[in-house]
Structure formats: structure tokens, C-alpha cells
């Protein structure tokens, strides 16, 4: 293994390259976690992949999160990246409003993102601009809602034996 890559160095390099697009760093996480500008996500991921020093060139995981209470930034896409050369993991997040859930696709950077983006679209209704085949993957095609959004409760609403109030919640 070559020399260690530390979060400070990566953050510094990213800030020098993208400036304002690196919105903030989340503290207290288990790995470097950055919130970045939605429009720039593809450029950032592609730059990280191709930078000869960093070589963050493995897409570990891509998925969505729904925060219904965060107005204007209800939906998030979380990218887990891994530099296999330096054994350095990092996490990038982009936020967007539920009214306009659009983010550039990264399928032309990582071909493996294809199904993961389709899954995120399927679950959260996030549209990946430029995706070659953005259709549902796990759920049925005729479904007209995105089931992992928080407004869809898992339990049957008519059941009373599982009411949270009975347990002081």
C-alpha cells in the first residue's frame, strides 16, 4: 500500500478544485462525509476517479434517503466511494427538493451505477438525468408511487394492536 490518504488532504484538494460546490463537511461521521452541489456531483465523482493522487475509483454504494421534515431538501442521494489503492473511504451527499428530484447520472463514470440508480428511482422517485434506461427495477412497472418515501407506512393503518401510543412513544 502506498502512502496514507487522510480526510484533510482530500477535502483540501476538493475545495481547491471545486470551491463553492463543496457545501459542507458533516462532523462526527465514521468516514469523510461531504455535502456537495447537486449539479456538480458527476464532475466531482469523475474528478475523484481520475485524479492521479487520490484515485477514489470504486463506487461502493449508491442510494437515496428521504427526510420529509427538511423543507426544500427532502430527498438525498448518498454515494459511498472507496479508493482501493489508498484504502480510503468517503461519502458524498446531494440534497434536493421533492418537487424537483433530479440529479445527473453517473452511469458514464461508473457503469455499475446503472442498476443502483434505477433502484433509487424505483424507491424514491429520484430522476437521474441522462440515465440510459431509467425504469423500475425491483417493483412492478405499473406501480405509481415510490414506496420507500416516508409517507408510506409499512403497517396497515387500521391495526390498533401496534399503536405506538401504547408504548409511550
Amino acid at each position: 500500500m502506498s502512502k496514507e490518504l487522510n480526510p484533510e488532504l482530500v477535502l483540501e484538494k476538493l475545495k481547491a478544485q471545486f470551491g463553492e460546490s463543496i457545501i459542507k463537511q458533516e462532523e462526527g461521521s465514521d468516514m469523510l462525509t461531504l455535502e456537495v452541489a447537486r449539479e456538480k456531483i458527476k464532475e466531482i465523482i469523475s474528478w475523484l476517479k481520475n485524479d492521479p493522487e487520490l484515485q477514489v475509483s470504486f463506487l461502493t454504494l449508491l442510494g437515496g434517503v428521504h427526510y420529509p421534515k427538511d423543507e426544500g431538501r427532502e430527498l438525498a442521494v448518498v454515494y459511498h466511494l472507496h479508493s482501493l489503492i489508498h484504502n480510503f473511504r468517503m461519502r458524498l451527499k446531494v440534497f434536493m427538493s421533492i418537487g424537483q428530484p433530479e440529479v445527473p447520472t453517473i452511469t458514464d463514470v461508473y457503469v455499475g451505477a446503472n442498476w443502483q440508480e434505477r433502484e433509487t428511482f424505483d424507491f424514491y422517485g429520484i430522476r437521474f438525468k441522462g440515465h440510459p434506461n431509467l425504469t423500475r427495477i425491483l417493483n412492478e412497472d405499473s406501480m405509481d408511487y415510490h414506496p420507500l418515501r416516508k409517507e408510506y407506512h409499512l403497517e396497515d393503518g387500521t391495526r390498533e394492536d401496534k399503536d405506538d401510543r401504547f408504548f409511550g412513544r
Binding site: 462526527g28 465514521d30 434517503v65 461519502r91
Partner: peptide, 20 residues
């Protein structure tokens, strides 16, 4: 409160859990 990602080497490779 927090976020963790933990992975193990499963039968088919990196099996990860991203927990919020």
C-alpha cells in the same frame, strides 16, 4: 444518533450495511 457504514467479506464479496 449517527451514520455508519460497515462491511464484511460475505460469500460473494463486500456485503455492506449503511445505517442511519
Amino acid at each position: 444518533v449517527g451514520e455508519v457504514y460497515h462491511s464484511v467479506e460475505g460469500g460473494n464479496g463486500e456485503l455492506g450495511y449503511y445505517l442511519i
